[in-house]
């Protein structure tokens, strides 16, 4: 089987995500912590819909109204220098 990368930033593949979901019957947050999917440079902005689709398929449950994986600020990477700037007003 060809490898299907889901999280491009951390190069986490479909098989690893599916296996983790099956083995641990876990939440999206736990998937992120266990596999690093969605934890890379883009902050999961690319793979999030794919992860949601995989969870829906594997769990057989429709997506909840609450967003499955909490959206954390900052929604774009910010350099520490930028945050530390005194003229940041």
């Amino acid at each position: 089987m060809d490898r299907i990368v889901i999280c491009r930033c951390e190069e986490v593949d479909l098989e690893e995500i599916e296996q983790t979901l099956i083995n641990y019957q876990c939440s999206m947050r736990e998937i992120k912590l266990r596999t690093r999917a969605g934890m890379g440079y883009c902050g999961g902005r690319t793979c999030r819909p794919a992860l949601n689709a995989i969870l829906e398929k594997v769990s057989g449950e429709k997506q909840p109204h609450q967003i499955p994986l909490k959206v954390q600020p900052p929604v774009r990477p910010v350099s520490l220098g930028r945050i530390g700037e005194t003229n940041y007003e």
């Binding site: 491009r8 930033c9 902005r45 990477p77």
Partner: peptide, 26 residues
Amino acid sequence: SGSPRGIYCNIGHCFECRVTVDGTPG
């Protein structure tokens, strides 16, 4: 991994196209 990457989303979400410009990375 060293796998090659280029533009993907072209609207600033995927960060696949990040380059270093005049010494500033990302």
